[in-house]
C-alpha cells in the first residue's frame, strides 16, 4: 500500500491533472503557445508509450520507430490530398497501413537479435524515409500540406484547438491503459518472459517470435496513430517526420522517463520537448544539454526519472 503514498504517485496525479486542465489555463491566460506545445508533447508521448511497449516490456530495441509516425501521417495526408476527407476512412487506413508495415518489418527483423535488430529496423525506417522523399506526387522532399483536417461528420471538430488537444490526450490515456492491460495479460507475461529468457520460454512451450511479432504490430499501430495526430497537428507531413534522428529522439524520451515503466515515457517526452523548446531560444544545439542529461540518467538513475521517483519515499 506504500504505492498510495509515494512521491511517484503524487507526481503522476499532478501530471495527469495538469494535462487535463491545460486548455483551461491556456484560454484563461491567453497563452495559446503552451497549448500548441503540449499538443505536440501529448502526441509524442503516445509514440514514446508505443515504443516503450516493445522496448521496455518486449526487449526489442527498435531504432526505426519514427517510420510509423510517417506512415500514419502520410496515410492521412495522401487520403486528404486525393479528396478522401472522412476521418472514418483516413484513420483506420492509417492504423492498418502501420500494422501492415510492422508485420512485414517485424517478420523480417525479428529473425535477428541485439545490434542486428537495431540496425535492420533502422535500415527499414530509412527506406521508408527515402521512399517518401521520392513520392513526387505527394511533394517529395518538400512534404505535403494537408488543407483540410479529417472530417468526423460533426462528431468532433479537429480544427478546434481545444477539441483536438483532448482527442490527442484521450488517445494517450487510451494508449497507456491499453499497455497496462496488455502487460498484465497472458500475452504480456509471455512477451516479458521472452525478454527475460527466450530459451526458457521456448522450452516451456512458447513460440517466442510469434508473440514478439504481435507485440511489434500493436506498438506500430499505436505509433501510426500518433503519426496521424502529428500530421493533423501541423497540417503537414514530410519525410523528415521519419528521419532516423526522430527514432533516436523517441528512444531518448523513453529512456529519460523510464524504460519499462507505464508512465515513464510521458514524463520523458515532457522533459525532452520542453527542454528542446526552451533551449531552442538560446542555442540551436539543444543536444549539448540533453546529451549529458541522458548520460547522467543512464549512469546514475537506471529506470529513468520514473524509476528515480519510485525510490523517493515521502516518509
Amino acid at each position: 500500500m506504500t504505492v498510495m503514498f509515494n512521491v511517484r504517485s503524487v507526481v503522476w496525479a499532478l501530471v495527469i491533472v495538469s494535462l487535463m486542465l491545460l486548455p483551461l489555463y491556456s484560454s484563461v491566460s491567453g497563452n495559446i503557445f503552451i497549448l500548441t506545445l503540449f499538443t505536440r508533447i501529448v502526441i509524442f508521448a503516445l509514440a514514446a508509450v508505443s515504443l516503450n511497449l516493445i522496448m521496455g516490456y518486449g526487449g526489442m530495441m527498435s531504432f526505426g520507430h519514427a517510420a510509423y509516425l510517417g506512415i500514419g501521417g502520410y496515410a492521412v495526408g495522401i487520403l486528404a490530398y486525393e479528396g478522401i476527407g472522412s476521418g472514418f476512412i483516413q484513420w483506420p487506413v492509417a492504423l492498418l497501413a502501420s500494422a501492415l508495415f510492422a508485420l512485414v518489418i517485424g517478420a523480417l527483423s525479428l529473425r535477428t537479435r541485439g545490434v542486428y535488430f537495431i540496425m535492420i529496423t533502422l535500415a527499414f525506417a530509412q527506406m521508408a524515409y527515402y521512399i517518401a522523399s521520392g513520392m513526387a506526387r505527394y511533394g517529395g522532399d518538400d512534404g505535403l500540406t494537408i488543407y483540410k483536417r479529417s472530417d468526423f461528420g460533426g462528431l468532433i471538430n479537429l480544427s478546434d484547438r481545444t477539441q483536438f488537444y483532448y482527442v490527442c490526450l484521450a488517445c494517450l490515456f487510451g494508449g497507456i491503459y491499453l499497455v497496462w492491460r496488455i502487460v498484465n495479460s497472458r500475452f504480456g507475461l509471455v512477451v516479458q518472459g521472452v525478454r527475460s529468457n527466450e530459451q526458457r520460454m521456448e522450452a516451456i512451450g512458447f513460440h517466442a517470435n510469434r508473440y514478439r511479432l504481435v507485440c511489434f504490430v500493436i506498438s506500430g499501430m499505436m505509433c501510426g496513430l500518433a503519426g496521424a495526430l502529428l500530421a493533423t497537428n501541423t497540417d503537414f507531413v514530410s519525410p523528415s517526420i521519419m528521419y532516423w534522428t526522430r527514432s533516436g529522439d523517441l528512444m531518448v524520451m523513453v529512456i529519460l522517463g523510464g524504460i519499462g515503466s507505464l508512465f515513464g515515457p510521458v514524463i520523458g517526452t515532457i522533459l525532452f520537448l520542453v527542454l528542446e523548446e526552451s533551449l531552442s531560444q538560446v542555442t540551436e544545439f539543444s543536444g549539448i544539454i540533453i546529451g549529458p542529461l541522458l548520460l547522467l540518467i543512464v549512469l546514475f538513475a537506471r529506470g529513468g526519472i520514473d524509476g528515480w521517483l519510485g525510490r523517493l519515499r515521502r516518509g
Binding site: 495479460s185 497472458r186 507475461l189 512458447f206
Partner: peptide, 18 residues
C-alpha cells in the same frame, strides 16, 4: 507461465493473467 503454456493459446490481451 509454464502452466499457461499448456492451457490454450496466450493471445489474450485483456484479462489479468495473475
Amino acid at each position: 507461465l509454464a502452466a499457461q503454456a499448456h492451457d490454450g493459446h496466450s493471445f489474450r490481451f485483456w484479462g489479468n493473467a495473475r
